[in-house]
Simulated scan of single mutants.
Amino acid sequence: MSLFWRIFGLNAVVLGTATALLLWAPVTVSVPVLLTEAVILVCGLVVMLVANAALLRIGLAPLDRLTKLMTRVDLLRPGQRLPVTGHGGVAELIRTFNAMLDRLEAERATSSARALSAQESERQRIAQELHDEVGQSLTAVLLGLKRAADQAPGPLRAELQQVQETTRESLDEVRRLARRLRPGVLEDLGLVSALTALTNDFATHTGLKITRHFAADLPPLDAQTELVLYRVAQEALTNVARHAEAERIELRLRRTTGAVVLHISDDGRGIGIGREGDGIRGMRERALLIGATLEIDTGTTGGTHVSLSAPTAKKPVPTAQEEDADHG
């Protein structure tokens, strides 16, 4: 039944019932109307309006559910759908809305894959330039400063050594930035070694105490899944340093049935109820890229808990290069 006929039928039931009561009820209306008769008529009108409102609420309940879903739907949290029952106009509307969400989520996953692939390529290019150009230039400056300091008189030698030390610190910082942009350890030694190096470097520069727990039975993962796990851990640690005011962080990597779970928790102030920032939405986009599930909440004892469950067997989202090859 279409929405028009559903509303028409509900009103027809109410008006038909009211008409039947007027025809067969032993009630007459005097002229002028008596107080008791006016009370009966008003009560009848109220009952009719209440019945009409109740029936309309029941009939339009699917539209209310659809409206609420529209206000809270988020393409970074896929799978939000309404159940479809019947074959009327409302059911067809819900079915069409669910199909639209399917298309939007698929398009969002593909566009996110393209954007993240381009982002990683740009990071690798910048890291390479930092390592090759800036790093080599600073190394040359260091060698020149050393030669100048060896030949300089005492007071000037001390100043040149100070500049040399500053340049060496800048070189170390450039190398650290290059490692953050392009985790070479991840490509060469795998996820566990990369996370170990990441947390060690993070603890050194922030002073936070980080404990790690890596399961011994971790399954082999493809390069894309390892990169997503690494980037989510990197962003979660960065958020802790910037916003959490924490002192301790715990990082766990364990295996479950059909998935690998990365869990990061801290003892800070929690995430609150505010709007999610770009960092968290970036983590959700990366999770969507590999079909993973990301949960971020505040624990019962405070702090923030980030949990990423990455499936070990997944259907990969096509990248820009793969789509171009298919079309070619």
Rank of each mutant, 00 (worst) to 15 (best):
R180H: 11
L181N: 09
L181H: 09
R182G: 05
R182K: 11
R182S: 11
V185A: 14
L186W: 08
E187Q: 15
D188W: 06
L189E: 15
L189K: 11
L191E: 12
S193K: 10
T196Q: 14
A197H: 13
A197D: 15
L198K: 06
L198E: 12
L198G: 07
N200T: 10
N200W: 01
D201K: 02
A203F: 03
T206P: 06
T206K: 07
T206Q: 05
T206F: 06
L208Q: 07
L208N: 02
L208F: 01
K209H: 10
I210D: 07
I210Y: 05
H213W: 02
F214W: 15
F214N: 12
A215P: 01
A215N: 05
A215D: 15
A216F: 11
A216K: 12
P219M: 11
P219E: 03
P220R: 13
L221Q: 06
D222F: 08
D222R: 09
D222L: 06
D222E: 11
A223K: 13
Q224G: 13
T225S: 15
E226P: 07
E226L: 10
V228E: 03
L229D: 03
L229T: 03
Y230A: 03
Y230E: 04
A233P: 07
Q234C: 00
Q234L: 12
A236M: 02
A236R: 09
T238D: 13
N239A: 08
N239Y: 08
A241S: 15
A241Q: 04
R242I: 02
A244K: 06
A244P: 01
A244I: 01
A244R: 04
E245Y: 05
A246Q: 05
E247P: 00
R248N: 13
I249E: 11
E250Y: 01
R252N: 14
R252Q: 10
R254D: 14
R255P: 09
R255N: 12
T256R: 13
T257F: 04
G258P: 10
A259H: 12
V260R: 02
V261L: 08
V261R: 10
V261D: 12
L262D: 02
H263Q: 13
H263D: 13
H263C: 04
D267G: 04
D267W: 06
G268D: 08
